[in-house]
C-alpha cells in the first residue's frame, strides 16, 4: 500500500534542520564540557589518593590469590574437605555473632525509642514550639552525620572496652537516622484526625497518642526493622575498635593472616546478614499485609 509522505518545501526544511543541528551541537558541547570537568576532577582525585596503577597491577595477583589462600587450610588442603577443622572455633564465633545481633537489637531499640520521643517535637505539623523544633533537628543531623564507628571510638575510651560502647554508638546514630525517617512519615499524616481529637479538648500528648500514632505505627515499624538490618552489618565491624561483637575476631584473623579463619568468619557474617535480611523482610511483609487487610 503506497503511503503519502508529505515533504516540506526546501526553505522550511532548511530552517528546521538548521535549528535541529544547532540544538544537537549545543547539547554535545554541554556534554563535552561536563565530561572534561569530570575527568579533570578524576585526575586530581587520582593524584590526591596516591593511585598507583603499577602497584595495583603488580599486586593484583595477590588479591586473587588472597581468595585462594583464605579457602585453604594450614595443611594446604581446600577448606571444605575438612569442615570441622575449618570451623574449629564455631562455639566462640557463634556466641560472638549472637552478641553482634544483640548489640544491634539493643542499640536499634533504644535509638528507636528516643527517636520516637523526639520526632514529634521536630515534625513541621506537630512541633509544639519553634525553637525546640530547630534544636531537635540540629541534634538529629549531628547524630546521623557523625559515623557510628567514630562514636564507638570515643565511647570505648569513656565507657571502657566491650559491647556497651558499641550499643551506645549504634543507639546514637540510630536516633539521627530513624528520627529523620520517622519525621518524614509524621509530616505526611492526615491532619483531620488531629483536629478531631483537639476539638474534644485534648492536650498535645493525647493528640499525638490518639490521632498521629495510629496512622504512623506501621511505617515506623518498617523503617525500624530496616535499620536493625543495617545495624547488624554495622555491629559486625564494631569490634575493629574494641566495641564488642565478631569484629574483634575478624580483625585479628585478617591482621595475623589466619587465612582459613577469615573465610569462616566472613561466611558466618554473610549468612547471618542474609538470614536477618530474609527474616525482617518476612516480618515487614506481615506488617504491611495486615495493614492492607484492615
Amino acid at each position: 500500500m503506497p503511503v503519502a509522505i508529505s515533504i516540506l518545501p526546501e526553505q522550511q526544511l532548511a530552517a528546521l534542520s538548521r535549528t535541529y543541528r544547532e540544538a544537537v551541537a549545543r547539547k554535545r558541547l554541554r556534554a563535552t564540557v561536563a565530561a572534561a570537568v569530570f575527568f579533570a576532577a578524576l585526575v586530581i582525585a587520582a593524584i590526591g589518593a596516591e593511585v598507583n596503577l603499577k602497584t595495583f597491577f603488580t599486586y593484583f595477583g595477590n588479591f586473587v590469590s588472597y581468595f585462594d589462600r583464605i579457602f585453604r587450610l594450614e595443611s594446604g588442603a581446600r577448606v571444605w574437605t575438612d569442615v570441622g577443622e575449618w570451623f574449629w572455633g564455631w562455639k566462640k564465633w557463634l556466641s560472638l555473632l549472637g552478641e553482634t545481633i544483640l548489640i544491634s537489637y539493643v542499640g536499634t531499640l533504644s535509638g528507636a525509642i528516643l527517636a520516637f520521643g523526639l520526632n514529634f517535637l521536630a515534625a513541621k505539623n506537630t512541633a509544639p514550639v519553634a525553637w525546640l523544633r530547630f534544636a531537635v533537628m540540629r541534634f538529629m543531623e549531628f547524630c546521623r552525620t557523625v559515623p557510628d564507628i567514630v562514636f564507638a571510638l570515643i565511647f570505648v575510651i569513656a565507657f571502657g572496652l566491650g559491647p556497651m560502647a558499641g550499643v551506645l554508638a549504634i543507639a546514637i546514630h540510630c536516633v539521627g537516622a530513624l528520627g529523620k525517617q520517622y519525621l518524614e512519615i509524621v509530616e505526611n499524616v492526615d491532619m483531620k484526625p488531629v483536629e478531631g481529637v483537639r476539638a474534644t479538648g485534648a492536650g498535645w500528648m493525647s493528640c499525638m497518642r490518639f490521632a498521629v500514632v495510629p496512622q504512623v505505627a506501621a511505617g515506623f515499624a518498617g523503617y525500624t526493622l530496616l535499620r536493625f538490618e543495617i545495624n547488624v552489618r554495622g555491629a559486625s565491624v564494631m569490634g575493629f575498635v574494641g566495641a564488642g561483637g565478631i569484629g574483634q575476631e575478624l580483625i585479628v584473623a585478617i591482621r595475623k593472616f589466619y587465612y582459613s579463619d577469615v573465610s569462616a568468619i566472613l561466611l558466618l557474617i554473610i549468612v547471618t546478614v542474609f538470614m536477618i535480611d530474609i527474616g525482617t523482610g518476612w516480618v515487614r511483609g506481615r506488617l504491611f499485609g495486615a495493614d492492607r487487610r484492615r
Partner: peptide, 10 residues
Amino acid sequence: GVDTLIWALV
C-alpha cells in the same frame, strides 16, 4: 554483605 571496612582491611 561484607562491610566496607572489611574490604579495606583485605
